[in-house]
């Protein structure tokens, strides 16, 4: 026991008595209540007691909603109460998928869904590509023998901690048309002001750029950990074989980084598909529907239009997409582990 507690490094603030004392007191107090319980059911069944609170909350607030979602998806009406909702079968799904041309949202019965879906696809492709590229470059830079590495790492990571609302407001302020910093910069170069968030293309660009800004530090850290996990001997062996830096990057770094890259890719994909809160504050889906993404479509359909059935059906479609992504990752990982 002694040897183990010395191995594990405890944070200092946790071992300080001030925090620990009331905690220990509560623990021993609870023991008086729980000892009879253990005598009653036996020590092995105490496992159920330990798992119960978590399971209860998990069941009520995650599992049951997941099952209820199916019921919502197959019922109609504008009541949120289950008993007031008429069963409509697959009508919601039929409506979603009734399109003359899936690439033209105008021809779809539920055109906002498809607008959201295609916008999300564009967002995901560009955002994930940029975020992986930028975090790979940054991780490679931070993996070099640079001074003040801790400082740089912290700076690149810092935006990850900021809430989506704060991130959106910071950029909304910079991208202001009338007196924003960026337009001031353009004017000082002799150019004219650009309505960054009111022009459809620019708004799409900035929504992607801002989310790359806010999240890349997270992926940089994971890639950096992956880079540092590559044994030095591999590089030494490569340079002994006469490989230059570029070749050793292609033949050593990238292949060995692949497992980490897969994790990063899937995490980035899953997160990008769910993009919502930051865009909600930055553009609120606008101008028009230029930055309306699928989660915001669900939110609007449910809580503004009160069409809970349609929203649930859409969220089930989203869940299927996420499931495919997750399973894809698992299969890919297994294949890599086997190889």
């Amino acid at each position: 026991m002694q040897s183990i507690s010395s191995q594990t490094s405890k944070p200092e603030w946790l071992s300080s008595n001030l925090l620990l004392q009331p905690f220990l007191w509560a623990m021993s107090w609870l023991d008086y209540i729980l000892a009879p319980l253990q005598n009653l059911i036996g020590y092995k069944r105490m496992a159920y007691f330990f798992v119960l609170p978590n399971l209860l909350i998990f069941g009520i607030f995650i599992l049951i909603p997941m099952l209820l979602n199916f019921y919502y998806g197959f019922t109609g009406g504008d009541s949120i109460l289950l008993e007031n909702r008429p069963v409509v079968g697959a009508a919601n799904f039929e409506k979603i998928f009734s399109c003359q041309d899936f690439f033209k949202p105008n021809t779809c019965a539920e055109d906002l869904f498809w607008r959201g879906a295609w916008n999300t696809l564009t967002f995901v492709v560009f955002q994930v590509a940029f975020i992986i590229l930028m975090s790979l470059i940054t991780a490679l830079a931070l993996n070099r023998d640079v001074r003040g590495r801790g400082f740089f790492r912290a700076i690149f990571f810092y935006p990850v901690l900021l809430s989506p609302v704060v991130v959106a407001l910071i950029w909304k302020w910079i991208l202001q048309y009338q007196n924003g910093l960026l337009n001031a910069f353009l004017v000082s170069l002799g150019l004219t002001k650009v309505p960054w968030l009111l022009d459809a293309n620019w708004a799409q660009f900035w929504v992607i750029a801002v989310s790359v800004w806010a999240q890349m530090g997270f992926f940089t850290l994971i890639l950096l950990a992956g880079l540092q996990g590559i044994p030095k001997e591999m590089y030494e062996a490569a340079s002994m074989d006469g490989a230059n830096k570029w070749r050793s990057f292609w033949n050593v770094t990238l292949p060995l980084l692949m497992p980490t890259m897969t994790v990063v890719l899937v995490l980035a994909l899953i997160r990008a598909v769910q993009v919502f809160d930051q865009v909600f504050v930055l553009t609120n889906g606008g101008p028009g529907t230029a930055t309306l993404y699928i989660v915001q479509y669900i939110y609007r359909t449910a809580f503004e239009f009160r069409n809970y059935g349609m929203a649930a059906a859409a969220s089930l479609v989203l869940a299927v997409v996420l499931l495919i992504l997750t399973i894809g990752q698992l299969l890919f990982q297994r294949r890599q582990e086997a190889a």
């Binding site: 009520i60 607030f61 995650i62 049951i64 909603p65 997941m66 099952l67 209820l68 979602n69 019921y71 919502y72 949120i80 109460l81 289950l82 899953i270 769910q274 919502f276 989660v295 669900i298 939110y299 449910a302 809970y308 929203a311 649930a312 969220s315 089930l316 989203l318 869940a319 996420l322």
Partner: peptide, 13 residues
């Protein structure tokens, strides 16, 4: 599973 997928039933619960 993200919150966004179970938004409506979670609200009901």
């Amino acid at each position: 599973v993200p919150v966004s997928v179970i938004l409506i039933p979670a609200f009901l619960v």
